[in-house]
Design a protein around this nucleic acid. Structure first.
Lengths: 226, 226
DNA sequence: TTTCAATAATAGTAATACTATCATAAATAG
DNA sequence: CTATTTATGATAGTATTACTATTATTGAAA
């Protein structure tokens, strides 16, 4: 994947664009590392500032608060997945093959060639899995949705829903299945690692093949056999 | 449903059993109301104490922290759903009919007769939908799982997984489907209300029929047509 | 060389998440 | 029917969090 792509994100996510300055990039890079390490609840701007030898006040010039950093990172991730899907399904006509590739990309996009030096996609993927649902489970969800802070995720679901409808035009739940594939991909990796009685799949150190297989089974059983 | 049932929960969830005292019951009752009203992030023991005319220190005698109250409420809810399922599927032999009833119970257990005066199941259901996933998306998930703080949910999934296996013994993902039905039930009510582009179902003021229908479609397509 | 924008350094405030101590009221045991 | 235990209330205090404000410094652009 080309080095130097710039992921474009809603400007309401930040106060100053972190992709434009050295400090901004350091904030992104180390917030990924720190959130992964200590969890989103324990993460704060003081600890982040200490880590990058800057100050709390400086971080606050880029992001309103830590919730906005989380939204930023998740938007970045989904935009990047979307880009990977486009790349991997380019020139592929058969919508079934495209869905197959989408599922594979969903589960293991983070193991492809990294695209940007200050974003470790593999660690970011862990954040998406462990903290992703906190993005929209807040009292501010409606206002944030109105100003477009979840647009990336919704567009990605729309893209997948279109492929689903191509496979089976009369399938009654294309968006439901699309978002569910995303949610299941994350949930069952997490369950396999932490609450194994909630799943049947197993994962080991970055090997998510069983998750991929399970998602293929669910998606294609629903689309082919009904 | 009988008034006076006592839901039995893991003793590690609390410091003093809130079901045994008047203050304890007030804590449960009003934490449900307050979390629903202001959201889990803004909820704290000072506000709760003010609401029930008690003190922060008194609330801390019942629960270690607000995370434990959340785990308590969720465990209570899942235990109560489990009880409702048992009640509603009693004497029903056909596992397909049982799964049908399970799905209906899942989606609208909270609209049955209330069982306990200090728990408003309908409000509690909203908390489960909006805050449920925060229970296990923490850095402490493994230790908490080890001491049994998620047992209720896991047992409930096991129960549903068994019914799934009865319907189709060679279905390869009974636990996956079971937990996914729970997650989807909550997610798609939430999506319909806040992020409608992530779903195809519609809900209005406590009418979750479309969600139920969608879950039936997913479950039975996977189990019958594959 | 000035000047301007970004960052650092420092300080400060209100709220949060607790812990500790002591007084008092209500239940209960002897 | 006291004596004692137990639960709760009242109050205070600490460390951390989540910010905001002010001023100084530095490094790049005009």
């Amino acid at each position: 994947m080309a080095v130097g792509i710039k992921i474009s994100l809603n400007e309401k996510l930040f106060l100053r664009d972190p992709q434009e300055t050295a400090l901004g990039k350091k904030i992104i890079k180390h917030s990924i590392i720190l959130i992964d390490k200590i969890g989103f609840e324990a993460f704060n701007f003081k600890k982040l500032a200490r880590l990058i030898n800057s100050t709390e006040a400086s971080v606050y010039r880029y992001f309103e608060n830590k919730h906005m950093i989380l939204l930023y990172l998740l938007s970045w991730y989904w935009e990047w997945v979307s880009f990977s899907i486009d790349l991997n399904t380019m020139n592929i006509e058969d919508p079934k093959k495209r869905l197959n590739i989408i599922i594979r990309t969903l589960v293991s996009a983070s193991k492809e060639n990294p695209s940007i030096d200050y974003v470790n996609e593999s660690i970011l993927h862990r954040i998406v899995i462990a903290e992703g649902s906190k993005a929209y489970h807040t009292k501010e969800v409606d206002e944030e949705n109105t100003v477009g802070l979840f647009t990336n995720y919704k567009k990605l679901c729309e893209k997948v829903a279109c492929v689903i409808s191509e496979i089976k035009a009369d399938f009654p739940y294309p968006h439901t299945l699309a978002s569910n594939l995303f949610e299941m991909a994350n949930n069952h990796i997490y369950f396999a690692q932490h609450l194994p009685r909630l799943t049947d799949v197993h994962v080991t150190e970055g090997n998510f093949k069983e998750v991929e297989k399970m998602l293929q089974y669910f998606a294609f059983t629903l689309l082919e056999k009904s």
